[in-house]
Each structure stands twice: as structure tokens, then as C-alpha cells.
Design a protein around this nucleic acid. Structure first.
Lengths: 194, 194
DNA sequence: CTTTAACTTGAACAATCGTTCAAGTACAGA
DNA sequence: TCTGTACTTGAACGATTGTTCAAGTTAAAG
């Protein structure tokens, strides 16, 4: 057997994700990528096939990070509803960390791409649905614990969380006022239809 | 005095706005623009200065169209709150018309651009604030008519409308289910904090 | 009709785009 | 040590990018 490639694939995809997340698909050039992932064109194309192939992998990495974060929130607090709120606060307010953009990378991708990149668009939709399914799981748990009325539709609530998160993160890029944003997240869980 | 340019500036900006709205700033090339506005590079640069200059004008045209639409909604119904709901339904659900994208062009711009185009980003923020101010005006009227409690903060409510609209329009691009979307808009005005 | 200034045209520019591939390097197996 | 293969390298490709500008066109003024 041959040894694997010299580069650390996970690290490479992480760095590519950061750049794509910040600059978008069209705003990122292969030469930008070469610099941040420290690979030459030949290796990149042998490994990922194309700019689109690497972007697709970056989208998946991004979604996985989000789900990991959500599960981490769940473990950090004693209730699934509090976990959702913590996750949302983190997504909307925590720009102190090394997040390349305030906005959701999947939402950015939905906005940027057209049918010219139908497969990437499809992948972004699929991953949004995957995340929404995680919301459903948490909401079902909340229902079992009595935090959410048992007659509520958890899929509907999950859609609601999704819309709020994407909307607030977009608003956050335009607003910048931390107090206003925090109040808006609090209000989601104050006036919510749970 | 000399006669004005042969081209119809308003028409040109309209067509440029359509293309920019659909493809985004980075996704649109000057040659794409030349085709749809039927002008040659020299004329374009003499008139608009740069790709960014034309985009800035397109952003303004887009915002003006939105405000016109909002005022048209106000005239179409007998209450400011119903007007807001009508506007939101139109923005989220009416993809039958010739809108180049389901998403808000300003939201798309906020997502696509970075500090590399700080002035365009600033302009998009300014226009989002301008639209939000129109929401405030309608909400104040609603307050005067007793449709909204007088102790509510109209600026806060306007922010809420803004977030819902942007969030739902982003979700709409990923969802496609008209029934689900319509229910979500209805729910905004059912469970709202007014 | 001639002049003159405003405006349009499209070829051309340097820079950058995504991608390819022949040549070089590195290392497991014999 | 030698061979063979997996992998990396970076120069190079044609296409396209945003932009410029000298030449051409148009039409009002003299």
C-alpha cells in the first residue's frame, strides 16, 4: 500500500471552507484557494476534480460544523429549547470567533448561485434540509419533555427556527448593534408559537 | 444645447438591475451587461463610471421599486397592517412575475460582497434602512388607527418585518412549496408581537 | 455647408480566470 | 539499490475579466 497524500485533507477542506464562506463561490479564485490550502493546481484537481467539487465539499464541511455546534449546545444546557436558543445566539451574535462571515454560508450560497450551478444549489438545499431535520429532532425531544405543546407541528416549528436564524444573520450583517440583535433573538423565544 | 444621449437611461438601469439581481455583482460580467442594456463599453463607462457605479444605481433602482410596491399595496387595501402583509406575500410568493430571483437583491448583495467593495456594502445597508423606515411609517399609521398597540415600539416592529421578509425569501428559494410559504407569511401576522 | 462639441463604437489592453499536463519527486515493494 | 507507481509541481493554455481610448458618428450652432 501507498502512503496517503502528504496534505491533511480535513485541514485543507477547513481552510477552503473558510475562504469560500467569506468570499463566496464566484468571489473566490483558484489562486486564492491555492494560497490558503497550500496546494498546487494539479493536486487540487486530482483530489477534488474542480472548483465546484471543492466547494461542494466545503458546503458539507460547513453543515457538519453547524450540526456539531448544535449538538454541543444541547450538551451544554439542560433543555433542548435552551439549546436551540443558545445555538441561535451563537450563530447571530458570536462574531468574535473566527467566523469568516456573519451570514450563514448556505444562505449566502442560495443567494449567490443560479441554475448555472444547479448541482451546488441542490447541495445547499439538501444541507439546509439536513440542518432543519436536526432542529426537528431537538423539538421532538422538547415535546417529550413537555417544553413544547404536544399538539404543535415540530416540522413547522423547525422551519420557523430556520427562517429566524437566516433572517437574523442577514440582518446582523447590516445592523451591527449587539443589543438590538440580542433582543431580537430573545424575542424569537418569547413570542414564539411553541 | 445638445440633445441628451440616445439611450433611455431609466430603461438601461432597469435592465441592468434585472441582470445584477439575478446573477449578483460578481456573477455578472460587463459583457453580459453590454448585451442586456445594449450599450458599448465606452458609453457605459462614460455614463456610470464603472461596474460598481452601475451596480450602485441598480441597487437604488431596486430599492425604489420595492418602496413603490409597498405604497401600491397601501393604496390597494384599507389598512396599513394589511398592506404590510400584502407586500410580504408579494415578495415571498409572487415568483410568477418577472422577478429575476426569489430573494431580496439587497440581502443577496449583503451576502455576496465583502469589505473589498465597502462602498457598495454601505449602500446596500443604507437602502435596507430606507426600506425599514417605510415600514416604520406604515406601522405608525397602524398605531394611529388602533391596529397596533400604542405602547409598542414601531422601530422594533419594523425590524421584525424586515427580518421575516428576508428570512422567508431566502427560505423560499430552498423550499418551493407555495402552501408552506403562504402559511408562514400568515403566521407572521397571526403570532406577531403587535 | 462647415464647424464643433457630445456621444458612441469596438478593437485592444493587461490582468486574471479555471484548468491541463509533462516533468519531477517521494516512497513502498522486490 | 533499483523499479514502479502514486503524488506533487509550476509553467502554460485559451478564455474571459474590467477597462481604456483613438476613431467614427451624430446633430445643434454659426
Amino acid at each position: 500500500m501507498r502512503k496517503n497524500a502528504k496534505f491533511d485533507r480535513a485541514e485543507v477542506v477547513n481552510n477552503a471552507t473558510k475562504l469560500y464562506w467569506e468570499k463566496g463561490f464566484n468571489g473566490t479564485s483558484m489562486r486564492n484557494l491555492q494560497d490558503v490550502i497550500d496546494m498546487r493546481p494539479g493536486s487540487i484537481y486530482a483530489t477534488f476534480g474542480s472548483k465546484e467539487g471543492l466547494f461542494k465539499e466545503a458546503l458539507n464541511r460547513y453543515a457538519d460544523m453547524g450540526i456539531e455546534e448544535l449538538l454541543a449546545c444541547r450538551k451544554a444546557v439542560d433543555s433542548p429549547l435552551k439549546a436551540l436558543k443558545l445555538f441561535m445566539k451563537s450563530a447571530v451574535l458570536d462574531y468574535t470567533n473566527s467566523a469568516p462571515s456573519r451570514m450563514c454560508m448556505l444562505a449566502k450560497t442560495m443567494g449567490e448561485l443560479t441554475e448555472d450551478n444547479a448541482d451546488l444549489l441542490q447541495e445547499a438545499k439538501r444541507l439546509l434540509a439536513k440542518i432543519e431535520a436536526e432542529f426537528v429532532t431537538l423539538l421532538q425531544e422538547a415535546q417529550e419533555l413537555g417544553e413544547v405543546d404536544s399538539n404543535k407541528d415540530v416540522h413547522k416549528l423547525a422551519r420557523h427556527i430556520q427562517v429566524q436564524t437566516m433572517g437574523l444573520r442577514t440582518y446582523a450583517k447590516a445592523c451591527d448593534d449587539h443589543t438590538i440583535l440580542e433582543t431580537m433573538v430573545d424575542d424569537v423565544f418569547k413570542h414564539h408559537p411553541f
